[in-house]
C-alpha cells in the first residue's frame, strides 16, 4: 500500500445523547501534540443525529477540521450503521491514524472497523508517540494485567488505529478563538445489514458516579474491610467537599462492598486526581496501573512493605480505622477551599 496517500490524525469524537464525551477532548489534546510534530492536521469525526452544533466545541479543543455525519439512523449507537458511516468517512478522508476512546462504544466499533478496513488496531493504549520519520504511531499499552508494557506499531497498513483509555491523556485548555472548518459527510447506508434493534437504554446509579472527574479520591482496599469501613471513607469525602469521591480496589468490588463504577485499576478506571488517598490498599500492580499518575498520593497501610508505598508521596504505616476518624474531625473543623 502507498502510505503517502494517508495523512492527518483523525479523532472519533464520541458523543452520547448529543453530549461530547470527555475522552474525545482528551484525544484531541493528544492528537494536537502528535500532529504538530509531523506538521499534519487534526480532524474530528462527529457521528450522530442533530449533533452539528457540537462541532465548534471540538475545534476549540484542538480540531482543525470537523467532519459531521448527521443522520437519524445514527441517533443511538448501533454497531452496523456506525461502522458504515465511519468506514466510508475513513475511505474518503484517508487519515494516517485514527484514535477512539476505549469505551464500550469505541471498543465495539473500532475492531469491527479494523476487520472491515483490513488494518491494524491496538487496544486500550495508555501512551502514544509518533515516529517523525515514518509517521508510525508508537502505541504503548499494558499487557498481562499491567505487569508488562508493550509498544505496538502498524507499519505496513493505514490507517493506524488505536483505542485509548479514558482519563490517561490530558485535554488542552479550551480556546474559544480557535478557527477550523466544518464539513458535512453523507455516507450511503445499507440498513438491511443493521440487524440489532435497540429496545431501551437504562441509566442506573453507577452512571452518576464518575471517579475519573474527581479531583480528590478517597480509596479503600482490603484493609478497610467492611461496610462500616466504607462509611468512614464516605464521611471523609463529604468532609473534604464536592471535589472528593470514594473509590476502591478490585477486592472490595469483588466482595460486593462497592460498585464496579468506583473501581480503580487495570480492570476498572484509570484516574489522575490531584490527590489519591489510598486507605488500606496494598497496591497490587493492577491497582497501581490505574492510579500512579495521580499528582499526589498519600497511602495509609499497616504493612510497611506494602507495594503502595513505592508510588506514594507520603506513606503512613498505621491503622486506617484509627487515623480516618481523626482526619474527618480535622476536615470538619476546616473549611475546604473552593
Amino acid at each position: 500500500m502507498d502510505k503517502s496517500f494517508y495523512k492527518n490524525i483523525l479523532v472519533f469524537a464520541e458523543q452520547r445523547e448529543g453530549i461530547i464525551q470527555p475522552v474525545a477532548l482528551e484525544l484531541l489534546g493528544k492528537a494536537s501534540e502528535l500532529a504538530a510534530l509531523v506538521h499534519e492536521k487534526v480532524i474530528a469525526l462527529l457521528v450522530g443525529y442533530n449533533i452539528a452544533s457540537q462541532a465548534q466545541l471540538l475545534i476549540e479543543y484542538g480540531a482543525d477540521e470537523v467532519i459531521v455525519v448527521d443522520d437519524i439512523c445514527l441517533k443511538d449507537y448501533l454497531t452496523e450503521p456506525y461502522t458504515q458511516a465511519v468506514s466510508q468517512a475513513l475511505d474518503t478522508v484517508k487519515p494516517g491514524a485514527v484514535l477512539f476512546g476505549a469505551t464500550t462504544i469505541g471498543r465495539d466499533l473500532a475492531p469491527r472497523l479494523s476487520a472491515r478496513l483490513k488494518t491494524g488496531l491496538t487496544a486500550d493504549c495508555t501512551g502514544l508517540e509518533i515516529d517523525t520519520e515514518t509517521n508510525n504511531l508508537l502505541m504503548t499499552r499494558p499487557a498481562f494485567g499491567g505487569n508488562l508494557m508493550a509498544t505496538i506499531i502498524c507499519d505496513e497498513h493505514r490507517p493506524q488505529m488505536s483505542t485509548v483509555r479514558p482519563g490517561v491523556m490530558r485535554r488542552a485548555p479550551r480556546d474559544a478563538s480557535r478557527k477550523g472548518t466544518i464539513t458535512p459527510f453523507a455516507p450511503q447506508f445499507n440498513l438491511s445489514k443493521s440487524r440489532v434493534r435497540l429496545i431501551e437504554t437504562v441509566r442506573d446509579d453507577k452512571g452518576k458516579i464518575d471517579i475519573t472527574e474527581a479531583k480528590i479520591l478517597i480509596s479503600g482496599g482490603r484493609g478497610i474491610g467492611t461496610t462500616d469501613g466504607f462509611t468512614k471513607l464516605y464521611a471523609l469525602a463529604e468532609a473534604m467537599g464536592s471535589k472528593a469521591e470514594v473509590s476502591s480496589s478490585r477486592a472490595m468490588v469483588d466482595a460486593g462492598l462497592i460498585d464496579h463504577a468506583r473501581q480503580v485499576g487495570q480492570t476498572g478506571k484509570t484516574v489522575r486526581p490531584d490527590l489519591y488517598l489510598a486507605c488500606g490498599i496494598s497496591g497490587a500492580i493492577q491497582h497501581l496501573a490505574g492510579m500512579e499518575e495521580a499528582d499526589f498520593i498519600v497511602a495509609i497501610n499497616k504493612d510497611k512493605f506494602a507495594p503502595i508505598f513505592q508510588v506514594a508521596d507520603v506513606g503512613i504505616v498505621g491503622d486506617v480505622h484509627r487515623i480516618l476518624p481523626l482526619l474527618i474531625e480535622k476536615f470538619k473543623a476546616h473549611a475546604v477551599k473552593p
Binding site: S114, F309, D319
Partner: peptide, 26 residues
Amino acid sequence: PTRVKKSFTKGAKEAGELFEVDAETA
C-alpha cells in the same frame, strides 16, 4: 498488521517519605 516493537516493565516511581507514627501524629 500490528507487531510489538518493544516490551518493557514500568520503571518504578521514586518512593516518597514513609512515616511510622501514632494515629494523632499521622
